[in-house]
């Protein structure tokens, strides 16, 4: 019997690919911003600018949370979905 998920997958066979690409692009964007923050914080902390370090830390932390949350949307690997599930 065909269910919603299966017909969706059949109608849009490239969906997993697009989703994966979007997730990776977003992750790269997040990591890029974090590197920028870290670089700025390193330079500014040397000038005793604690508020800058604190702000970038909060930003970086939120971005890390967003990254972890994004990982939930990783498509399941094909091999596992075919076999039986635990």
């Amino acid at each position: 019997m065909s269910d919603f998920r299966r017909s969706q997958n059949e109608a849009h066979p490239n969906k997993t690919n697009t989703l994966m690409l979007a997730i990776i692009m977003l992750l790269i964007l997040f990591v890029g911003i974090q590197i920028w923050f870290l670089f700025g914080a390193l330079n500014n902390a040397l000038q005793d600018n604690i508020y800058f370090a604190l702000t970038t830390f909060i930003g970086s932390f939120l971005l890390a949370l967003a990254s972890f949350w994004l990982l939930r949307y990783l498509p399941d690997p094909l091999k596992k979905s075919r076999g039986k599930r635990k």
């Binding site: 997040f30 990591v31 974090q34 914080a41 932390f61 890390a64 972890f68 990783l74």
Partner: peptide, 22 residues
């Protein structure tokens, strides 16, 4: 999948590094 998970890990590590500075 592994690459994306690694990016997630990297993201966590960078946040940690920023915390260490604070």
């Amino acid at each position: 999948r592994e690459f994306a998970k690694f990016l997630g890990l990297l993201s966590g590590a960078l946040a940690l590094g920023n915390g260490v500075i604070v």
